[in-house]
């Protein structure tokens, strides 16, 4: 009798422990995803009529068809691609810095934490710092280019350069993140394998490529994931540094979506939702690989 009560307690307990988190997560994450997907088939200005009824109009694939012919969407998509590709530079640079800092001289701990600094700072602040850095006429970058070439470049006002300027700002904290991942990884490289390889005459690049990098694979894996997410989430910097300009040339999907749904162009919730669905789909392509790998690890155990 008592033991059966204990057993049923053990069946109910996990759900009681899970309930608060699951309820919150369903309300604020799972349900909104489904709702956004539904909304992307509607034309809706975000309002309800006097009786509290939803005022949206079903348009089927209309929003998506419009997206296909929308030049601003194409620009955003291209810029997202630039972000993705160039953000990957954070990996080699972070690795290089980690190797540079993986020493045991005095004060190295302080150096490591100061190198990590940019990651702790809000992207809003990072954006302001780089705006100041690029500012025409007196910004350090502007002055430097002016000094070298005789003519300054106003990065954030040039449609051809602006996205690269923002990506450079984003790389700063991202490199810091990757750096810390690799430093932790390097700390856990098996010393006996390194010594054995040294006895075999391996050093420098060969050592790095054949002995060290294979052991850094978990770190590389996480670094790729956080870098992809970082690249696709790029909203703050675009918003702070340029608001998508000049002439919409620095828009990315996340920012364009916000502009369409809440910006000065009016409340096009359905259209915004369609942009969000595209962004979500792109993210899922990358993330499903990650989930798949984790899933395999879990089920093997």
């Amino acid at each position: 009798m008592a033991s059966s009560r204990r057993l049923s307690q053990r069946q109910v307990a996990p759900w009681l422990f899970l309930a608060p988190a699951l309820v919150m997560f369903t309300i604020y994450v799972l349900w909104p995803i489904a709702y956004s997907v539904t909304l992307s088939f509607y034309d809706w200005n975000g309002l309800y009529d006097r009786d509290g009824q939803f005022t949206g109009r079903f348009v089927g694939l209309g929003n998506y068809r419009e997206l296909a012919g929308d030049p601003a969407f194409t620009v955003s998509l291209w810029n997202n691609l630039k972000w993705l590709v160039l953000y990957m530079l954070a990996l080699p640079i972070g690795l290089f810095l980690a190797i540079f800092l993986n020493q045991t001289v005095t004060g190295i701990r302080l150096y490591k934490s100061l190198f990590f600094f940019p990651f702790v700072i809000s992207q809003v602040v990072v954006g302001l710092m780089f705006s100041w850095f690029y500012a025409p006429n007196f910004g350090l970058f502007y002055s430097l280019v002016e000094w070298i070439t005789g003519r300054g470049v106003a990065v954030l006002a040039d449609p051809n350069l602006v996205t690269y300027g923002i990506i450079a700002a984003g790389l700063w904290p991202q490199i810091a993140y990757v750096l810390i991942l690799y430093l932790t990884g390097l700390n856990n490289v098996a010393p006996d394998q390194v010594e054995a390889a040294r006895l075999d005459g391996a050093k420098g690049w060969r050592m790095l490529w054949h002995v060290i990098l294979p052991q850094l694979r978990p770190a590389t894996f996480i670094a790729v994931i956080v870098t992809v997410i970082g690249a696709l989430r790029s909203f703050d910097l675009v918003s702070i540094m340029t608001s998508g300009g000049p002439f919409g040339s620095s828009r990315v999907l996340s920012y364009y979506m916000y502009e369409m749904a809440l910006g000065e162009y009016g409340f096009r919730m359905g259209y915004g939702a369609a942009i969000a669905v595209v962004l979500f789909a792109i993210m899922m392509v990358f993330i499903s690989g990650f989930i798949w790998r984790m899933w395999r690890q879990e089920t093997e155990r």
């Binding site: 988190a21 604020y28 349900w31 909104p32 956004s36 969000a276 993210m283």
Partner: peptide, 22 residues
Amino acid sequence: LIVFFLFVAGNFVPFQILMVPV
């Protein structure tokens, strides 16, 4: 495991897909 991976996957969604409903 399904519940666990729901939490894991939820981490990675872009904020914009949650924005309008939230």
